[in-house]
Design a protein around this nucleic acid. Sequence first.
RNA 1: GUGGGUGUAGCUCAGCUGGUAGAGCGCUGCGUUGUGGUCGCAGAUGCCGCGGGUUCAAGUCCCGUCACUCACCCCA
Length: 433
Amino acid sequence: MAAINAPKGVPDYVPPRSRDFLHVQEKLSSPARLSGYEYIELPVFESTELFERGVGTSTDVVQKEMYTFTDRGDRSITLRPEGTAGVMRAVIENRLDKGSLPVKLWYRGPFFRAERPQHGRYRQLQQVGVEAIGSVDPIIDAEVIALADQAFRSLGLKDFHLDLTSLGCSQCRPAYRTKLQDFLSTCDLDQETRDRAALNPLRVLDDKRDTVASQLVDAPLMIDSLCVQCQEHYDQVRGVLRMFGVPWIEAPRMVRGLDYYTRTTFEFVHPGLGAQSGIGGGGRYDGLMAELGGSELSGIGFGLGVDRTLLACEAEGLTPLSERILDVFVIPVGDPSREPSVALLVALRVAGVAADVCVDNRSIKSAMKAANSTNAPLVIIIGPDELSTSSVIVKNMLSGDQRSLSSGHETLITAVQETLRSIQAETRKEDQS
RNA sequence: GUGGGUGUAGCUCAGCUGGUAGAGCGCUGCGUUGUGGUCGCAGAUGCCGCGGGUUCAAGUCCCGUCACUCACCCCA
């Protein structure tokens, strides 16, 4: 039989790297969980219209990157390409916008974009995101950004930076947009770029091609055209950001690919990833909720790329992020030892000790080899000698020491837990030095 | 969607100007009597991506195809 491959551009995470993936996902979400954000679980597919209206039909995401299909009821369905629109839909549908504000939520899971795969760019990508809806207080803007900054730092990442700017609002952006379009009309651009200039001129600023970028050095910038309210808001956001201790770089040419962003807009960039250097980004959105049929509430949020953050950790040499998943490996020697070994295994697991057992009646030599490859710090051996004396051997795999302990579960497990604690304390000391 | 690169053991790769496959790592076993990580010895594993062509002969040359990969557009 011919083997079947995964669809194009979707990653598998297999051990041991899958441990790091899980670790990254956990670390990215933990600042939000510790800051009063509640979890929201959302469907992976939604009505196509949600993304057309929410993300915007002028975006590449909607125009050419969505996985859209017709379901059996002839409805147009799309695998979600991003998280914010779905959160808005659920907030409106469940009337959370009628409750106490701001609504603070976090989510995680897979998203789908039919792009050409590349390093750090997958057709199924994993994100952790937050949304804070119903307040324009600059504290919220700064908090959301600080949450992301904290998330990356908690993994030990150092080589990333934060790009920050304000994209203005419905008061000041239209005038700027016209000004920019006037400027772009004087440039020598190819047809595709001219089309983009007509549709969404801001995105032309982001073009990396020299032929385009060189013409744009004198282009007008949104940051110089902010209205008084936007300017004041942006100043305050930066003030609070200083209080949070988050450094940033002014990025007046930064543009995001999603249409709904207004005012505060940001992106975290890591240089170690190649071309796909954004490891997270987000911003404020004023009109999105109303556009989707909800209240006139502003919100702000971010999406952090789990896949790319893992790559960033690898680029900085931080991996493996977690060495050990097992505390104890139990080895039965001989048939009569199988039953007491399983009994001990169960007791260990009930007591919260991560334990596994050697199966298939392996020789003690090969069982020890298997034990070694699990990285478990402790091995418990039960053989004929131990059975006859109602004892077990507990071996410390790091030091090589071993001792004989009574096989009574209660005292044995207490001793095992103590040993694990002291081993943990020791390795922590080593890590520090 | 556009352009470049690569496809040889589980992994990383070597194989010069064509003559029916190699290394390191890993894996399995052994180094005697119940003990891993070091060391030594032995061993297993390959439709050389797939299809076609040139040739007495192709992993090696040509064409196609698929996959992967990097970059562009765009994005996490």
